[in-house]
Amino acid sequence: MPKLNGAGLLRGLIGTAGLLVVLEAAGRLGAWDTERLPLVSTVLLRAGELLADPEFLVSAWSSLTTWALALALTIAIAVPAGLLLGMVRPAEVAVRPLIEFLRPIPSVALIPLVILMFSETTNMRITVAVYAALWPVLVNTIYGVRDVDPLAKETLRSFGFGPASVAYRVVLPGAAPFIATGIRLAASVAIVLVVTSELIAGGIEGIGVFITIAASGNRLDLMIGATILVGLFGILVNALLVAGENRLFRWHRARTEGAT
């Protein structure tokens, strides 16, 4: 994870602003029919207005809670499972074919099936998101557990600590940086799947539902405005998690960088 320093951030902002200016200019010069596809400035203005629009906020809150629940459930399932599979080699060997089979199945392809299984839309959305978000956390946890130095474990064992203590005091903290990376990836995946399931399966609330309704009213400004807000939320979550990782796992960074 490259750390964004001041200069990098500035360049990124300049690049983004430059693209927006070019698009705005092209729109104003008549490159496309702005009645159909609105100007950049219109979309940005609409995105800002949406943040104060009660109807949108209800939908956004619905998506946000679905996402948070999905991520929490993902962590609650994938981290313990990953710890177990990482530590118990025979168990990992036994379920690996299953993992390799299930992992490439696109979560989206499961949506029709899950719709039939759940009558309640929130449960359906959570299930779809968890299914997709599970894999990066599970695989990273297994990898992280494997990466824990055998000598680190032996040291604690030599002081007479049992397997449970070794798992809690050495394996879990040692694997934590990898688990955190998995969770960060899962957070992005879960956003995508929550919105996708809302778009495909519909419902009463949710950003995906809001976008669908805007589309049926031919309101491209609202559609794109809402989409931009989802994207910004994704960036914000990622930045917060990266900052958290940099803070918590300074030791890991120092170690991997010092190991050259």
Partner: peptide, 21 residues
């Protein structure tokens, strides 16, 4: 049988046997 009480080990590889966190 198993790791005895009252015993400690100092390994050669301090960087691997100390906990960096």
């Amino acid at each position: 049988d198993g790791s005895p009480e009252n015993l400690a080990v100092v390994f050669q590889d301090y960087s691997r046997s100390l906990y960096p966190w």
